[in-house]
């Protein structure tokens, strides 16, 4: 199990089913349950490590609870996955979504929760729901998750929100899959697009959430939601390296 994740979150062992063995994310092959669990573990670990940075970003233009809220939410996600090991990628994502909606008191709970839940639903309703999904199906589900966030938060590109990291990541992922790139490379491109997107929020004026009340004074600060979204997308690439190596 991922030592950094455990150390940082204090959540004990990982989710049980995510430990390398049998996980697949390399080549052009399918993405299985272990990969999705590894993604959620890596995301939880990175959020825990960067909790204070996220909270500092939020202190500048928000209410200084983003890091704490997300860290707690993702720790609960790992706990839920341990208690009820998922048997499909869709199940893992829906469990993560439901947990975030229930356990995070801030806006990021319903937003990320809806994204994961919608990803799970999209995979579940696919033509061949099962223990492994194709990169194309995963990219489509990711896009559906991003759309769910846009709908719920009524946010669009340029509003200085998590959408500014998620939407470019989704486009990069779909493009890479269409171009036939290997899965790990496709996820790495998504991660890069999300990081670029998060950085691009610095000069933006916030139009949603608490930061929008600050108007022009929100300029010059990276959006904390976009920053955490970039971490979560980066965890996809990390999980791919980890599970392919297992």
């Amino acid at each position: 199990m991922n030592a950094a994740t455990d150390g940082a979150t204090g959540s004990g062992t990982g989710a049980g089913t995510g430990g390398g063995a049998g996980a697949a994310a390399g080549g052009g092959g399918g993405l299985d349950t272990a990969f999705v669990v590894a993604w959620l573990e890596e995301a939880a670990g990175e959020i825990a490590r960067q909790r204070d940075r996220l909270t500092e970003l939020d202190a500048a233009i928000g209410d200084a609870d983003h890091g704490t809220n997300l860290d707690r939410g993702f720790s609960e996600v790992l706990r839920a996955l341990r208690e009820t090991p998922p048997s499909s990628p869709a199940q893992a994502l829906m469990a993560a979504g439901a947990t975030l909606i229930r356990r995070v008191g801030g806006a990021s709970g319903p937003l990320y929760g809806s994204a994961f839940r919608q990803m799970g639903r999209t995979l579940d309703s696919g033509e061949a729901p099962g223990a492994s999904v194709t990169p194309a199906a995963f990219a489509e589900a990711f896009g559906a998750g991003v759309t769910a966030v846009e709908r719920l938060g009524k946010a669009a590109a340029g509003d200085k929100t998590m959408i500014d990291a998620l939407a470019p990541a989704s486009r990069a992922l779909s493009q890479a899959v269409r171009d036939g790139l290997e899965t790990r490379e496709a996820l790495t491109r998504a991660a890069r697009a999300a990081a670029d997107g998060a950085r691009a929020t610095v000069p933006m004026t916030a139009r949603r959430g608490r930061a929008s009340y600050l108007g022009e004074r929100s300029v010059g600060h990276e959006d904390p939601g976009a920053a955490s979204a970039a971490l979560i997308v980066a965890a996809l690439a990390t999980a791919a390296s980890r599970t392919a190596a297992g």
Partner: peptide, 10 residues
């Protein structure tokens, strides 16, 4: 406002 609205919508 904010998360209250998002939660209510859910």
């Amino acid at each position: 406002l904010g998360s209250s609205v998002l939660t209510a919508r859910l």
